[in-house]
Design a binder for these strands. Structure first.
Lengths: 216, 216
DNA sequence: CTCTTTTTTTAGACAAGACTAAAAATTAAA
DNA sequence: TTTAATTTTTAGTCTTGTCTAAAAAAAGAG
């Protein structure tokens, strides 16, 4: 696996998350910041290796093997993000570029031990789930509110913090299980967000958004 | 800096440690497991970038800038080795290949924070000194006995462990400050070594060798 | 000091991964 | 359904880092 091959698999995996069926060459090119012709070349190579299913003009799809490799890279990426934030005092917006490099380090022992060292975390600092070794990703339907981007919406299905003070706060704001929620705006600086619940719009801090589980 | 460029600088730095003057193209080729012609090409490139001084047929030498880059990579390598051994339960013979990858991760913050997280270690698990950010390497003349390879020799200049039981052991074996010592053989499996002091040959364990300081 | 051996460099080629420009297939529109 | 627009692929080129084979320089031997 070259670095480039790994990045293609990861890109296809991520696009597959939001789109159904075969992934278009153009979509991959956009994600990878490259040209469609380059994508075609690489897809052919990955296809020959049995990592994607590809038919000319019909788009691409990861095979089981390709998907396993992709989730493994994502697993590594997210574990490193946890490490950077929890152990090395990175803020959650600083981690991405470094994790993007670290995710390509090849050593099974390294990642297993890192996982243990971090206490087998379930989510990365952005609230995204960390896949297990076999590529199982804990139901992606449930995510933390904090991971939603501007204009995304979902339904409140749980909270992480269940202290009474937190729950009282939710009550006061009219935040309750089963309510529909939409992100109106998101402030990149501190990840506070303006949300709407039942025509009512208000601001909440990252800390709050970090503790609310959403089904997309 | 590409990965390959970094590896060349590192190789030249390491060869310079044992040899004086300009480093021969062949020596670099051997260290890099490549051919002399490839080395010539790369050296030219590094020379144009001002990282090595190079004259046709006369060998190469790192410039101050090249040396700084090399020591920085070595700094990263050795810090990661400490991390792997101290935090992730690697044994000291397992760390090299992984550190070889990690040393190329680019992030100043990462390495600064790692250094702090590890408590600003002075040596890696093999006893080699960790360069500081400015490329200063603490006097390389003193190393741990355990770092010597087969056939290397030196003079005993200190011990790390000064418990009485350890010192008694040394006494009994005739190991004392100022004695000349030569490594006759080294067992890769457990890093135990056969050493010679004054015509007397005997075996010592890695644990012992780890606590004896040598001036080469 | 000349001839041989070794070392180093040049010249030309190749694989990976990217790009541009042009051709082919698919999709959309009239 | 026949043309127009878009998407995808092919063909050919470029760069990086490597290689082999051959030429050039330096070092060693007689």
């Amino acid at each position: 696996m070259t670095l480039s091959e790994e990045n293609y698999l990861k890109a296809i995996y991520h696009i597959s998350d939001t789109c159904e069926g075969g992934i278009s060459t153009n979509a991959i090119a956009e994600k990878m910041n490259t040209k469609a012709s380059s994508v075609t070349d690489m897809i052919k190579k990955l296809s020959e290796k049995g990592l994607v299913n590809y038919k000319r003009y019909k788009g691409s799809e990861l095979t089981a093997e390709g998907k396993l490799i992709a989730t493994n890279i994502i697993r590594k990426h997210r574990l490193w993000e946890v490490f950077l934030v929890e152990k090395l005092n990175f803020t959650w917006d600083e981690v991405h570029d470094v994790a993007e490099q670290l995710e390509h380090i090849k050593s099974e022992k390294l990642i297993d031990q890192l996982d243990e060292f971090l206490g087998f975390p379930k989510r990365d600092p952005h609230g995204d789930p960390i896949p297990d070794k076999d590529g199982n990703v804990s139901d992606n339907a449930d995510v933390l509110l904090v991971t939603l981007d501007k204009n995304e919406k979902g339904i409140i299905v749980g909270v992480k913090d269940s202290s009474s003070s937190f729950l009282k706060y939710l009550d006061k704001q009219g935040i309750a299980l089963g309510k529909k929620i939409k992100v109106i705006d998101k402030e990149p600086f501190d990840n506070s967000m303006k949300i709407r619940i039942k025509k009512e719009e208000f601001m909440i801090s990252q800390q709050i958004a970090n503790n609310i589980c959403i089904k997309k």
